[in-house]
Amino acid sequence: MREMEQIIILPYRKVLQIAWQGMRIRLLKTFLVTSCIALALAFLTFIMCSNGMVEQLGERASEQLQQRLAREGLLEQLLSTEQRSQTAWMLGIALMISFAGIVNAMLISVTERFREIGTMKCLGGLDSFIVKLYLAESLFQGTVGTTIGIVVGVVLAYVEGLNRFGSEAFQLLPIVTLVQILVISFVAGVVLTVLGALYPAWSAAKMEPVDAMRSEV
């Protein structure tokens, strides 16, 4: 039997072009998913930043500020063990919201396109093309959403800080801690988004096209 030819592998440029067009036309959906990611990350970053500020009150706040806070009974309250366990809870909840929110949003946006995945496979699309397409899409949405979310979260944290601690809020958070928070948030946001999209996309790509087109989600 003569050799059977194989389909070519599309260059990345082509995949990006198709992904970009899809997101542009589905603008409202892209926007909704991206804002969902942004919202989750804003919450997470906000919690981490304001916790970071409170933790440093004892060391980095000026005498004046410490006295004022002590007078108002705030210092004691902020540094109490009760408050600390509450803070840990908040952080846990923020993480959970980010995880559930992002993964859920990506899962829905991919599963509602199972038929499209099946169709593309019928036309000669490779599994790897489908995975790359959704990788490109989710990387974009993840990066944009996460970046917006982080900016909003940090700004809100400083607004709250200014409100509670005055202009000293800017000194409270050491640069190293801030960078740490930014890196953790960014990685968490992008990784969650990509995984949330790739898992369903990969499982749909692996299906026989008929099964992908038939599955109602």
């Binding site: 059977m4 030819e5 194989q6 389909i7 019928c122 036309l123 000669g124 699309g125 490779l126």
Partner: peptide, 10 residues
């Protein structure tokens, strides 16, 4: 997989 994809495509 790549042969099947070729078949479906061409």
């Amino acid at each position: 997989l790549r042969q099947i994809a070729y078949l479906r495509c061409h």
